[in-house]
Design a protein around this nucleic acid. Sequence first.
DNA 1: AAAACGTGGGG
DNA 2: TCCCCAAGTTT
Length: 320
Amino acid sequence: MTATTDPSSATAEAADAVVGADAADGAVRSARALHAPVVDWFAAHARDLPWRRPEAGAWGVMASEFMLQQTPVNRVLPVYEEWLERWPRPADLAAEAPGEAVRAWGRLGYPRRALRLHAAARAIAERHGGEVPSEHAQLLALPGVGEYTAAAVVSFAYGQRHAVLDTNVRRVFARAVSGQQFPPNATTAAERRLARALLPDDDATASRWAAATMELGALVCTARGPQCGRCPIAEQCAWQLAGAPAHEGPARRGQSYAGTDRQVRGRLLAVLRASKDPVPQSDLDQVWHEPVQRARALDGLVSDGLVEPLEGGRYRLPLT
DNA sequence: AAAACGTGGGG
DNA sequence: TCCCCAAGTTT
């Protein structure tokens, strides 16, 4: 275990962040008091996910993070296994046609992620000697890698001390520290500051803390129906202490789907994925009744590089 | 900075 | 049933 009790600059910074986040709460809790319970809870309750096993490597971690962007763990699992078996290293994927990545992506959703993971693999093969970079800035420069994914890779794959702020962690901090039921709609500077302030001092503990807070949010401190009875820090949770007040601020605007271009794109791509050979326009025309929207959706897929138009009005997943 | 971007499961 | 949500990124 680590020194969870000695004071440090990080503690003072955390205190400031906490006060800043909730000035009404006069009792400044020690950030350090959260580390041990959460990390110990993680040691006892963490799921055995394939990308957490040592053999996953940085490439496995990175691939899993792409797949997990907005897609639940259970749906990712089978695709991840096939993907890593087929393309065990970045160079293996880089050697493939991008369309094969899109096909293997299956129904995970947001297929541009498949294209970006493929492009990232090519960048890694060309610019990084086939090794997933271990610097946050270099990762951030890769297609499809944003602030969260870069942080996840350096933390989970390389064991670095880096704040990892995903939707789960944001919710845990919002409740446990800020006393709010939900975090703001968009990640704020205050949240980043708080996440940095709460980070344990040493790399190993910081890395575990990142994974642990994420897992706590995913399994216990969930968006709906949180299981506070099973939470290791329920006694210190600012939201609980405040009587679990309902969320104030603006509600998150839901995403509509039925009837949108996204739905049409999804149907078009499903047809293309299913066929190894080029598909005639007439087959694509079956998926949507409205010709204007249908054409717009197809154009969008082409301009996104997800679909390749051929001579004679035929289409296929991209070869190059 | 708001909006686009897929898909399916659970409350 | 319907709505909400899921390890975000890009433009």
